[in-house]
């Protein structure tokens, strides 16, 4: 396959996401730019301008009308995708680390970094749309989630039942989300927590039905975890610290990305690199293939929702869109 190389950022990519149909790809990086691309040919649809700091996170709703971004300038913004207009700016007193729409697009959760002695927090907003795709937001809950150290990742489980939060010490916590009757407020209650990694959790992505999720960690493993019990279902071992892991749509594969941190590249031994995306069989935990390409660690991976390909964003500032060859679809794992 010949990947499409996107050169829309000048600093390390922090997160990339496909929309639900997989025709648009949204990328954010530490250079304050938010880009939207047509995934099939790499044409840039536009940029969302307004952030004044590194953009850490991006979320797109299921109808591809609203986009949410979280930035180190202590704001989260909601944009209209169609014309790049900023509809809302939410201000906080710490950097926004992760934003995520709920499964029904009704809520937006915003997770804050640890900052100046302030603990990580999660805000849940209710997003109200009017006809033209504009929105109003209501703040609902604001629990302190820093029990296990800084929170690094968060995502919504099925039916908006839980918010799963990953921490710097390798713990995942399961918060039950319950909105009030008027839907003007709600609560997040900690139900379970489990230490599933020995080091920082770097990414958390859900399966299509949101009944299980995959986490990646700096302890060189990726885990498949059940959302109800937080039990580890599968463990994928790598030889480098992982920055991201994703479940491949339509096939029983997972893909992980990582590599030594850029600051450590010169201090390590002969076999540098390991900047490949690695494919594992989801069930047998075997590595089944690798894709080279990035000149630095892979920071973020996103899988095309129809299973036709995947995209990766690296510390080198490039985004690469991959579409699988025919032999990928013809391959059968022999067991």
């Amino acid at each position: 396959m010949r990947p499409i190389l996107l050169k829309g950022h000048t600093r390390p990519i922090t997160q990339i996401k496909y929309n639900r149909e997989g025709d648009l790809l949204f990328t954010v990086a530490k250079d304050m730019v938010v880009n939207a691309w047509y995934a099939h040919n790499g044409e840039r649809l536009g940029t969302f301008d307004g952030h004044k700091g590194s953009v850490w996170s991006i979320a797109v709703d299921s109808s591809s009308t609203l986009l949410a971004t979280g930035s180190a300038d202590n704001t989260a913004k909601i944009w209209r995708i169609r014309d790049g207009k900023c509809l809302e700016t939410l201000e906080f007193n710490a950097a926004v680390r992760k934003v995520e729409f709920s499964t029904d697009d009704k809520y937006l959760s915003v997770m804050l970094d640890n900052h100046m002695g302030q603990k990580s927090e999660i805000f849940v907003y209710r997003v109200v749309r009017s006809g033209s795709g504009s929105s109003e937001v209501y703040r609902m809950v604001r629990p302190n989630v820093a029990e296990h150290g800084r929170a690094t990742v968060q995502a919504w489980a099925y039916y908006n039942k839980y918010i799963i939060v990953g921490h710097v010490d390798g713990t995942v916590c399961q918060y039950e989300f319950s909105p009030s009757d008027q839907q003007q407020s709600g609560s997040l209650k900690l139900l379970k927590s489990k230490k599933i990694h020995n080091d920082e959790i770097t990414d958390l992505q859900f399966s299509a039905d949101r009944s299980y999720f995959i986490t990646s960690s700096k302890d060189k493993t990726a885990n498949l975890v059940d959302v109800e019990t937080l039990d580890i279902l599968k463990i994928y071992k790598s030889d480098t610290s992982l920055n991201t892991a994703a479940l491949v749509a339509k096939k029983d594969y997972i893909v992980v990305g990582g590599g030594q941190a850029a600051s450590e590249v010169t201090t390590t031994g002969a076999r540098q690199g390991k900047f490949e995306a690695r494919f594992f069989h989801m069930i047998f935990e075997h590595e089944i293939g690798r894709v080279k390409g990035h000149f630095g660690p892979i920071n973020t991976l996103s899988v095309e929702p129809n299973g036709l390909g995947y995209s990766s964003g690296g510390e080198d500032g490039f985004v690469r869109i991959h579409y699988f060859d025919d032999d990928y679809f013809g391959y059968k794992y022999d067991y």
Partner: peptide, 15 residues
């Protein structure tokens, strides 16, 4: 946007 050189994903049982 540009198209890069060919990369390969060879799936095999033993990676």
């Amino acid at each position: 946007a540009s198209v890069t050189e060919q990369v390969f994903l060879k799936l095999s049982q033993w990676g």
